[in-house]
Computed example of a mutant assay.
Amino acid sequence: MDINALVIIIVIGAIAGWLAGMLMKGGYSLIGNIVIGIIGAFIGGFVFSFFNITTSGIIGSIVTATVGAILLILLLRVIKK
């Protein structure tokens, strides 16, 4: 993995985490958004592959990561209660 790929992963994670935080009415720090977005990308990838949904490109990656991040936030809220 080169530095360009790492930067793209971080940027997609930050965008997805920010979007999920806005949609779920929760504000997170930049690092929090990145972590939520990257973990969300794994969750979203698993869920999308389970339902046989394919995405491509950067927009598809952001959508997949955002859906996964929303699911992660929901899961964390359920565990927290």
Rank of each mutant, 00 (worst) to 15 (best):
T66E: 03
S29F: 13
S61R: 09
K25N: 13
V63T: 05
S56Y: 01
I59H: 00
V63L: 12
V47W: 12
V67Q: 06
F50W: 07
V63F: 03
V63Q: 01
I31L: 13
S49P: 08
G37F: 09
I39C: 12
F48Q: 02
G37K: 09
S29N: 12
I53L: 01
T66R: 06
I36K: 13
I31D: 02
S56H: 09
F42V: 12
S61Q: 09
I39N: 07
G40M: 11
G32F: 07
L30T: 14
I58L: 03
S29Q: 13
V47H: 05
G40Q: 13
F51I: 07
T54Y: 06
G60M: 00
V35M: 07
T55I: 01
V67M: 02
A65K: 06
A65T: 02
I34K: 02
I39P: 10
I31A: 05
V67L: 15
A41T: 14
T66F: 01
T64M: 04
S29D: 10
T54A: 04
K25P: 06
V67E: 07
T54C: 00
I39Y: 05
V63M: 04
I58C: 05
T55D: 04
V35I: 12
I59K: 07
G57E: 03
T66Q: 05
S56R: 02
G27S: 14
I31R: 12
K25Y: 11
I39R: 08
S56D: 11
L30Q: 10
S49V: 05
I62W: 02
V63C: 01
G26C: 06
I53F: 10
N33V: 05
I62Y: 00
G32A: 10
V67N: 03
G57D: 04
V35K: 13
V67K: 01
V47P: 06
F50G: 00
I62L: 00
I38A: 09
G57H: 12
V67C: 08
F51H: 04
Y28Q: 14
I53C: 01
V67A: 08
G60D: 00
G26K: 12
I53Q: 05
G44T: 03
G27I: 06
G40C: 11
V35P: 10
F51E: 06
T64V: 04
I39L: 13
I31C: 10
S56K: 05
V47R: 08
I58K: 08
S61D: 02
F50I: 09
N33I: 12
F46N: 12
I62G: 00
V35T: 07
I53K: 09
L30R: 09
I43A: 15
L30V: 15
G57W: 13
G40V: 13
G40N: 07
I34F: 02
V35W: 03
I43R: 15
I39V: 12
S29G: 15
S29M: 15
A65C: 07
T64R: 02
Y28G: 10
T64Q: 03
G45H: 09
I36A: 09
T64P: 00
I36F: 14
F51S: 14
I62S: 02
K25A: 05
F51N: 15
S49N: 14
T55L: 04
S61W: 03
T54F: 00
I34R: 11
V67H: 07
G45E: 10
G26A: 04
I59S: 00
F42G: 14
G32I: 14
T54D: 04
G45S: 11
G45C: 08
I31V: 14
G40A: 08
F46E: 06
I34S: 07
N33L: 08
G60A: 03
I36T: 10
S29W: 13
I38P: 00
